[in-house]
Design a protein around this nucleic acid. Structure first.
Lengths: 146, 146
DNA sequence: ATGGATGCAAATGATTTGCAGAATG
DNA sequence: CATTCTGCAAATCATTTGCATCCAT
Protein backbone atom coordinates (compact mmCIF):
# COMPACT_ATOMS: atom_id res chain seq x y z
CA UNK A 1 0.00 0.00 0.00
CA UNK A 2 1.24 3.41 -0.94
CA UNK A 3 0.44 5.23 2.27
CA UNK A 4 2.69 2.80 4.04
CA UNK A 5 5.59 3.80 1.82
CA UNK A 6 5.01 7.42 2.62
CA UNK A 7 4.96 6.67 6.32
CA UNK A 8 8.20 4.80 6.01
CA UNK A 9 9.79 7.66 4.17
CA UNK A 10 8.69 10.10 6.81
CA UNK A 11 9.88 8.05 9.76
CA UNK A 12 13.15 7.26 8.04
CA UNK A 13 13.67 10.97 7.66
CA UNK A 14 12.76 11.60 11.29
CA UNK A 15 15.24 9.01 12.46
CA UNK A 16 18.00 10.22 10.19
CA UNK A 17 17.63 13.68 11.68
CA UNK A 18 17.81 12.33 15.20
CA UNK A 19 14.22 13.33 15.89
CA UNK A 20 11.55 11.36 17.70
CA UNK A 21 8.21 9.87 16.94
CA UNK A 22 5.18 11.06 18.85
CA UNK A 23 1.47 10.47 19.00
CA UNK A 24 0.78 13.91 17.52
CA UNK A 25 3.27 13.48 14.73
CA UNK A 26 1.66 10.21 13.82
CA UNK A 27 -1.83 11.70 13.76
CA UNK A 28 -0.83 14.68 11.68
CA UNK A 29 0.91 12.46 9.17
CA UNK A 30 -2.15 10.25 9.00
CA UNK A 31 -4.52 13.15 8.38
CA UNK A 32 -2.20 14.64 5.81
CA UNK A 33 -1.82 11.39 3.90
CA UNK A 34 -5.56 10.77 3.96
CA UNK A 35 -6.37 14.22 2.63
CA UNK A 36 -7.47 14.60 -0.94
CA UNK A 37 -4.85 17.24 -1.51
CA UNK A 38 -4.53 21.02 -1.12
CA UNK A 39 -5.21 20.86 2.60
CA UNK A 40 -4.55 23.82 4.91
CA UNK A 41 -2.98 23.86 8.37
CA UNK A 42 -6.39 24.77 9.80
CA UNK A 43 -8.07 21.84 8.16
CA UNK A 44 -5.46 19.47 9.49
CA UNK A 45 -5.85 21.04 12.91
CA UNK A 46 -9.61 20.47 12.91
CA UNK A 47 -9.31 16.89 11.79
CA UNK A 48 -6.61 16.00 14.25
CA UNK A 49 -8.48 17.75 17.04
CA UNK A 50 -11.50 15.53 16.37
CA UNK A 51 -9.38 12.59 17.42
CA UNK A 52 -7.20 14.23 20.01
CA UNK A 53 -8.68 17.43 21.35
CA UNK A 54 -5.58 18.32 23.32
CA UNK A 55 -3.40 19.03 20.33
CA UNK A 56 -2.08 22.57 19.83
CA UNK A 57 -2.12 24.58 16.66
CA UNK A 58 1.61 25.23 16.78
CA UNK A 59 2.25 21.52 16.65
CA UNK A 60 0.49 21.34 13.31
CA UNK A 61 2.82 23.93 11.86
CA UNK A 62 5.92 22.43 13.39
CA UNK A 63 5.11 19.08 11.86
CA UNK A 64 4.05 20.53 8.55
CA UNK A 65 7.55 21.98 8.30
CA UNK A 66 8.87 18.47 8.77
CA UNK A 67 6.60 17.12 6.05
CA UNK A 68 7.99 19.80 3.78
CA UNK A 69 11.58 19.03 4.70
CA UNK A 70 11.14 15.32 4.23
CA UNK A 71 9.84 15.94 0.76
CA UNK A 72 6.41 14.46 1.43
CA UNK A 73 4.59 17.75 1.16
CA UNK A 74 4.68 20.73 -1.12
CA UNK A 75 3.44 24.25 -0.41
CA UNK A 76 0.93 26.02 -2.62
CA UNK A 77 0.46 29.71 -1.97
CA UNK A 78 -2.09 31.52 -4.03
CA UNK A 79 -3.45 35.02 -3.64
CA UNK A 80 -4.15 36.05 -0.07
CA UNK A 81 -5.50 32.75 1.19
CA UNK A 82 -3.69 30.47 3.54
CA UNK A 83 -0.96 28.11 2.46
CA UNK A 84 -2.12 24.74 1.24
CA UNK A 85 -0.15 21.55 1.50
CA UNK A 86 -0.16 18.88 -1.09
CA UNK A 87 1.16 15.36 -1.16
CA UNK A 88 4.29 14.84 -3.23
CA UNK A 89 5.21 11.30 -2.49
CA UNK A 90 2.27 8.97 -2.86
CA UNK A 91 0.74 10.46 -5.87
CA UNK A 92 2.21 11.20 -9.23
CA UNK A 93 3.29 14.78 -9.75
CA UNK A 94 0.69 16.91 -11.43
CA UNK A 95 0.17 20.48 -12.47
CA UNK A 96 -2.79 22.75 -11.85
CA UNK A 97 -5.32 24.65 -13.87
CA UNK A 98 -6.77 27.25 -11.52
CA UNK A 99 -10.01 29.05 -12.27
CA UNK A 100 -9.80 32.78 -11.59
CA UNK A 101 -13.57 32.96 -11.16
CA UNK A 102 -14.64 30.03 -9.02
CA UNK A 103 -11.27 28.93 -7.67
CA UNK A 104 -11.59 25.40 -8.97
CA UNK A 105 -8.39 23.33 -9.13
CA UNK A 106 -8.04 20.95 -12.03
CA UNK A 107 -5.16 18.53 -11.81
CA UNK A 108 -3.40 17.75 -15.05
CA UNK A 109 -0.29 16.07 -16.29
CA UNK A 110 1.49 16.20 -19.60
CA UNK A 111 4.45 13.95 -20.22
CA UNK A 112 5.82 16.16 -22.95
CA UNK A 113 5.87 19.18 -20.70
CA UNK A 114 7.54 17.14 -17.97
CA UNK A 115 10.21 16.08 -20.41
CA UNK A 116 10.79 19.55 -21.80
CA UNK A 117 11.22 20.90 -18.30
CA UNK A 118 14.00 18.43 -17.66
CA UNK A 119 15.63 19.51 -20.88
CA UNK A 120 15.22 23.19 -20.12
CA UNK A 121 16.87 22.77 -16.73
CA UNK A 122 19.70 20.76 -18.20
CA UNK A 123 20.39 23.41 -20.83
CA UNK A 124 20.88 25.87 -18.00
CA UNK A 125 23.27 23.68 -16.02
CA UNK A 126 20.57 23.26 -13.45
CA UNK A 127 19.71 20.10 -11.57
CA UNK A 128 15.94 20.02 -11.10
CA UNK A 129 14.44 18.57 -7.95
CA UNK A 130 10.80 19.45 -8.27
CA UNK A 131 8.63 21.96 -10.02
CA UNK A 132 5.34 23.71 -9.91
CA UNK A 133 3.22 24.66 -12.89
CA UNK A 134 0.05 26.64 -12.41
CA UNK A 135 -2.09 27.82 -15.28
CA UNK A 136 -4.62 30.50 -14.35
CA UNK A 137 -7.68 31.14 -16.44
CA UNK A 138 -11.36 30.22 -16.67
CA UNK A 139 -12.90 26.80 -16.37
CA UNK A 140 -15.70 25.50 -18.56
CA UNK A 141 -18.46 26.71 -16.26
CA UNK A 142 -17.02 30.18 -15.81
CA UNK A 143 -15.73 30.81 -19.28
CA UNK A 144 -18.83 32.72 -20.32
CA UNK A 145 -19.41 34.51 -17.07
CA UNK A 146 -16.44 36.81 -16.87
CA UNK B 1 9.21 52.88 -25.92
CA UNK B 2 7.91 49.93 -23.99
CA UNK B 3 7.62 51.54 -20.59
CA UNK B 4 5.35 54.09 -22.16
CA UNK B 5 3.01 51.36 -23.31
CA UNK B 6 2.86 49.93 -19.83
CA UNK B 7 2.04 53.35 -18.42
CA UNK B 8 -0.70 53.78 -20.93
CA UNK B 9 -2.16 50.44 -20.06
CA UNK B 10 -2.12 51.26 -16.38
CA UNK B 11 -3.73 54.66 -16.74
CA UNK B 12 -6.32 53.33 -19.16
CA UNK B 13 -7.22 50.79 -16.53
CA UNK B 14 -7.38 53.45 -13.82
CA UNK B 15 -9.67 55.59 -15.91
CA UNK B 16 -11.91 52.71 -16.91
CA UNK B 17 -12.42 51.92 -13.23
CA UNK B 18 -13.30 55.50 -12.44
CA UNK B 19 -10.17 55.91 -10.35
CA UNK B 20 -7.80 58.86 -10.22
CA UNK B 21 -4.22 59.56 -10.97
CA UNK B 22 -1.98 60.77 -8.18
CA UNK B 23 1.61 61.72 -7.60
CA UNK B 24 2.18 58.60 -5.47
CA UNK B 25 0.57 56.30 -7.97
CA UNK B 26 2.80 57.71 -10.65
CA UNK B 27 5.94 57.24 -8.58
CA UNK B 28 5.11 53.69 -7.58
CA UNK B 29 4.39 52.77 -11.18
CA UNK B 30 7.69 54.33 -12.23
CA UNK B 31 9.70 52.44 -9.63
CA UNK B 32 7.93 49.20 -10.44
CA UNK B 33 8.52 49.53 -14.16
CA UNK B 34 12.15 50.43 -13.64
CA UNK B 35 12.79 47.44 -11.41
CA UNK B 36 14.70 44.51 -12.72
CA UNK B 37 11.96 42.14 -11.60
CA UNK B 38 11.04 40.23 -8.45
CA UNK B 39 10.75 43.38 -6.38
CA UNK B 40 9.10 43.41 -2.95
CA UNK B 41 6.70 45.96 -1.47
CA UNK B 42 9.47 47.01 0.94
CA UNK B 43 11.92 47.62 -1.84
CA UNK B 44 9.42 49.74 -3.72
CA UNK B 45 8.68 51.61 -0.51
CA UNK B 46 12.36 52.42 0.03
CA UNK B 47 12.88 53.58 -3.52
CA UNK B 48 9.79 55.73 -3.62
CA UNK B 49 10.59 57.18 -0.22
CA UNK B 50 13.94 58.33 -1.54
CA UNK B 51 12.07 60.63 -3.88
CA UNK B 52 9.09 61.45 -1.74
CA UNK B 53 9.70 60.84 1.93
CA UNK B 54 6.10 61.51 2.87
CA UNK B 55 4.71 58.41 1.26
CA UNK B 56 3.07 55.77 3.45
CA UNK B 57 3.65 52.06 3.35
CA UNK B 58 -0.03 51.29 2.95
CA UNK B 59 -0.10 53.27 -0.25
CA UNK B 60 2.47 50.93 -1.74
CA UNK B 61 0.27 47.95 -1.07
CA UNK B 62 -2.88 49.67 -2.25
CA UNK B 63 -1.25 50.49 -5.55
CA UNK B 64 0.42 47.13 -5.90
CA UNK B 65 -3.07 45.64 -5.80
CA UNK B 66 -3.95 47.89 -8.70
CA UNK B 67 -0.90 46.81 -10.65
CA UNK B 68 -2.03 43.24 -10.11
CA UNK B 69 -5.59 43.97 -11.17
CA UNK B 70 -4.53 45.82 -14.26
CA UNK B 71 -2.48 42.84 -15.31
CA UNK B 72 0.84 44.69 -15.22
CA UNK B 73 2.20 42.77 -12.26
CA UNK B 74 2.27 39.19 -11.13
CA UNK B 75 2.78 37.88 -7.60
CA UNK B 76 5.48 35.42 -6.72
CA UNK B 77 5.22 33.81 -3.30
CA UNK B 78 7.94 31.45 -2.29
CA UNK B 79 8.69 29.91 1.09
CA UNK B 80 8.23 32.22 4.02
CA UNK B 81 9.64 35.40 2.53
CA UNK B 82 7.63 38.36 1.41
CA UNK B 83 5.68 38.50 -1.79
CA UNK B 84 7.59 39.62 -4.84
CA UNK B 85 6.10 41.46 -7.78
CA UNK B 86 7.15 40.95 -11.30
CA UNK B 87 6.40 42.77 -14.51
CA UNK B 88 4.03 41.01 -16.86
CA UNK B 89 3.41 43.56 -19.53
CA UNK B 90 6.63 45.02 -20.82
CA UNK B 91 8.70 41.92 -20.83
CA UNK B 92 8.06 38.62 -22.42
CA UNK B 93 6.67 36.00 -20.11
CA UNK B 94 9.30 33.74 -18.64
CA UNK B 95 9.61 30.89 -16.22
CA UNK B 96 11.98 30.43 -13.30
CA UNK B 97 14.67 28.04 -12.24
CA UNK B 98 15.09 28.58 -8.50
CA UNK B 99 18.14 27.34 -6.65
CA UNK B 100 17.27 25.64 -3.37
CA UNK B 101 20.74 26.36 -2.02
CA UNK B 102 21.60 29.95 -2.89
CA UNK B 103 18.16 31.23 -3.89
CA UNK B 104 19.28 32.33 -7.33
CA UNK B 105 16.53 33.00 -9.89
CA UNK B 106 17.28 32.05 -13.46
CA UNK B 107 14.79 33.28 -16.03
CA UNK B 108 14.05 30.93 -18.86
CA UNK B 109 11.61 30.51 -21.69
CA UNK B 110 10.75 27.58 -23.87
CA UNK B 111 8.38 28.01 -26.78
CA UNK B 112 7.49 24.36 -26.87
CA UNK B 113 6.45 24.35 -23.25
CA UNK B 114 4.43 27.48 -23.82
CA UNK B 115 2.64 25.82 -26.70
CA UNK B 116 1.99 22.58 -24.85
CA UNK B 117 0.50 24.51 -21.97
CA UNK B 118 -2.01 26.10 -24.31
CA UNK B 119 -2.88 22.70 -25.64
CA UNK B 120 -3.17 21.17 -22.19
CA UNK B 121 -5.57 23.89 -21.09
CA UNK B 122 -7.64 23.53 -24.22
CA UNK B 123 -7.98 19.80 -23.73
CA UNK B 124 -9.50 20.52 -20.35
CA UNK B 125 -12.00 23.08 -21.63
CA UNK B 126 -10.03 25.72 -19.85
CA UNK B 127 -9.27 29.21 -21.11
CA UNK B 128 -5.77 30.13 -19.94
CA UNK B 129 -4.96 33.69 -18.99
CA UNK B 130 -1.52 33.38 -17.51
CA UNK B 131 0.67 30.81 -15.91
CA UNK B 132 3.56 30.31 -13.61
CA UNK B 133 6.23 27.67 -13.93
CA UNK B 134 8.89 27.31 -11.25
CA UNK B 135 11.51 24.61 -11.33
CA UNK B 136 13.33 24.10 -8.03
CA UNK B 137 16.73 22.47 -7.88
CA UNK B 138 20.42 23.30 -7.77
CA UNK B 139 22.27 25.80 -9.94
CA UNK B 140 25.68 25.20 -11.46
CA UNK B 141 27.54 26.67 -8.50
CA UNK B 142 25.62 24.77 -5.87
CA UNK B 143 25.18 21.46 -7.64
CA UNK B 144 28.18 19.93 -5.87
CA UNK B 145 27.66 21.53 -2.53
CA UNK B 146 24.47 19.95 -1.34
C1' DA C 1 -18.04 69.94 -4.59
C1' DT C 2 -17.63 65.15 -4.32
C1' DG C 3 -15.80 60.96 -3.89
C1' DG C 4 -11.48 58.64 -4.49
C1' DA C 5 -6.60 58.67 -2.36
C1' DT C 6 -3.37 59.23 1.26
C1' DG C 7 -0.77 58.84 5.83
C1' DC C 8 -0.96 57.24 10.13
C1' DA C 9 -1.79 54.03 13.50
C1' DA C 10 -4.20 50.33 14.89
C1' DA C 11 -6.08 45.82 13.40
C1' DT C 12 -5.73 41.55 11.22
C1' DG C 13 -4.41 36.93 10.05
C1' DA C 14 -1.25 33.47 9.42
C1' DT C 15 2.69 31.55 11.18
C1' DT C 16 6.45 31.32 14.64
C1' DT C 17 8.67 31.28 19.08
C1' DG C 18 9.80 31.21 24.27
C1' DC C 19 9.06 28.57 28.01
C1' DA C 20 8.04 25.07 31.45
C1' DG C 21 6.48 20.67 31.76
C1' DA C 22 5.70 16.02 29.38
C1' DA C 23 7.31 12.26 26.80
C1' DT C 24 10.63 9.59 23.81
C1' DG C 25 14.64 6.64 22.88
C1' DC D 1 18.61 10.58 31.83
C1' DA D 2 19.30 13.79 28.12
C1' DT D 3 16.80 15.87 24.63
C1' DT D 4 13.23 16.43 21.84
C1' DC D 5 8.29 17.62 21.71
C1' DT D 6 4.20 19.68 23.12
C1' DG D 7 0.58 23.15 24.53
C1' DC D 8 -0.06 27.61 25.69
C1' DA D 9 0.30 32.30 25.17
C1' DA D 10 2.78 35.90 23.55
C1' DA D 11 5.47 37.60 19.65
C1' DT D 12 6.33 38.35 14.71
C1' DC D 13 5.81 39.70 10.14
C1' DA D 14 3.55 40.99 6.17
C1' DT D 15 -0.42 43.00 4.74
C1' DT D 16 -4.90 45.38 5.44
C1' DT D 17 -8.15 48.66 7.25
C1' DG D 18 -10.53 52.71 9.74
C1' DC D 19 -10.50 57.31 9.87
C1' DA D 20 -9.72 62.19 9.30
C1' DT D 21 -7.87 64.87 5.86
C1' DC D 22 -6.25 65.87 1.27
C1' DC D 23 -6.66 66.40 -3.55
C1' DA D 24 -7.94 65.13 -8.48
C1' DT D 25 -11.52 65.70 -11.57
Amino acid sequence: MIKKEARKRFFDYIKKQGLRNTRQREEILEVFLSSGGHITADEIFEKVKARDSSIGYATIHRNLALLLDSGLAEEIKIGKGKTRYEQMHMRQHHDHLICLKCGKFIEVRDENIERLQEKLAEENDFKPVRHKLEIYGYCKKCINKH
